[in-house]
Design a protein around this nucleic acid. Structure first.
Length: 280
DNA sequence: CCAGACGTTGTT
DNA sequence: GTCTGG
DNA sequence: CCAGACGTTGTT
DNA sequence: GTCTGG
């Protein structure tokens, strides 16, 4: 999968957006402003190796109460056994096939400890899969995001009410890694799944595991209440009914382009006009 | 047992 | 050609 | 994944 | 750290 996401919200704004829940058990806290000496930097184009906000259960730290906490975390899971510089383990841990969970040496231990998390994003970017004979430049790139209320455009902040926008919630696995000096780093991987037979199959054979309902998110995070077996069931066939997308320019391919034009719609080619973007 | 893998991706 | 940083 | 680097030096 | 293959 094309490893790019969009998340421009500030920590407080993330709390506002995420805490829109009727469930009194869902209390939101943004903790650990800094991690690794690196700070979460909201951006229209975020890549692996950067710090992004994830939600985890407070019960990983406080056994008495369950509520949501939002942490800045390193995108790219650091293997528990790794020694040395944190990012020199040599594995691509940006995402992980959820189907392989029960045989994974790398992720299973964290999963069995209930270390499930949710990555909060405004949207993610994906190359469309096209025939091999087409050059890279001919591959359209799409921005995928949650369906919004009337009048709200997720790619246009001037239309936002921070408490009303709909975000994407992507299931993940996290761990806390300790370096030689005792410094801890919170890192995570994004879970992926087959997109065959769902609304995104036209785009790419795989897609992130997207949690759509508040209840689904609650169960994915509450590891005490929902054990591993049921958690895996939960993400086996997650719904993706409430998503939308549009074509964007290739400026997002350069990871250093953090500009707002990264998630803006571009003119579609004349003959495939209108909302036919959604077609294969 | 011990060495080697452990992950992903437009690859072959 | 291949690795790394984002 | 893709873009960009791929190097050195008594220097800041 | 933990599992698998030989």
């Amino acid at each position: 999968m094309l490893a790019r996401i969009c998340m421009t919200l500030q920590p407080a704004e993330i709390c506002w957006a995420v805490s829109d829940s009727n469930d009194p058990r869902v209390k939101i806290e943004f903790v650990k402003e800094e991690n690794l000496g690196l700070k979460y930097r909201p951006s229209y184009n975020i890549s692996p190796g950067e710090i992004v906000p994830i939600i985890i259960s407070s019960q990983h730290f406080d056994a008495d109460n369950f509520f949501y906490t939002i942490h800045p975390a390193l995108w790219g899971f650091i293997p528990r056994w790794h020694k040395g510089i944190y990012n020199e383990h040599g594995f691509n841990t940006t995402n992980f096939s959820s189907e392989k969970m029960n045989v994974s040496r790398m992720y299973k231990p964290a999963f069995l400890k209930g270390q499930r998390c949710v990555l909060v994003v405004e949207g993610y970017y994906e190359h469309k899969r096209v025939p091999y004979n087409l050059p890279v430049k001919e591959r359209p790139i799409y921005y995928i995001y949650a369906k919004q209320q009337k009048g709200v455009k997720i790619f246009d902040k001037s239309t936002w009410n921070y408490r009303d926008i709909n975000l994407l919630y992507i299931a993940g696995i996290f761990d806390i890694w300790t370096d030689d000096t005792g410094e801890e780093i919170l890192s995570f991987t994004m879970l992926s799944m087959d997109s065959e037979n769902d609304v995104l199959s036209w785009l790419h054979p795989r897609r992130p595991v997207i949690l759509e309902s508040a209840y689904q998110i609650y169960r994915w995070l509450n590891f005490n209440e929902i054990e591993e077996m049921r958690a895996m069931q939960l993400i086996k066939h997650p719904n993706v009914n409430s998503i939308e997308w549009h074509k964007v320019s290739d400026c997002v391919l350069n990871a250093s382009n953090k500009d707002s034009k990264c998630n803006k719609p571009i003119e579609t080619i004349k003959y495939e006009h209108k909302s036919d973007d959604n077609e294969d």
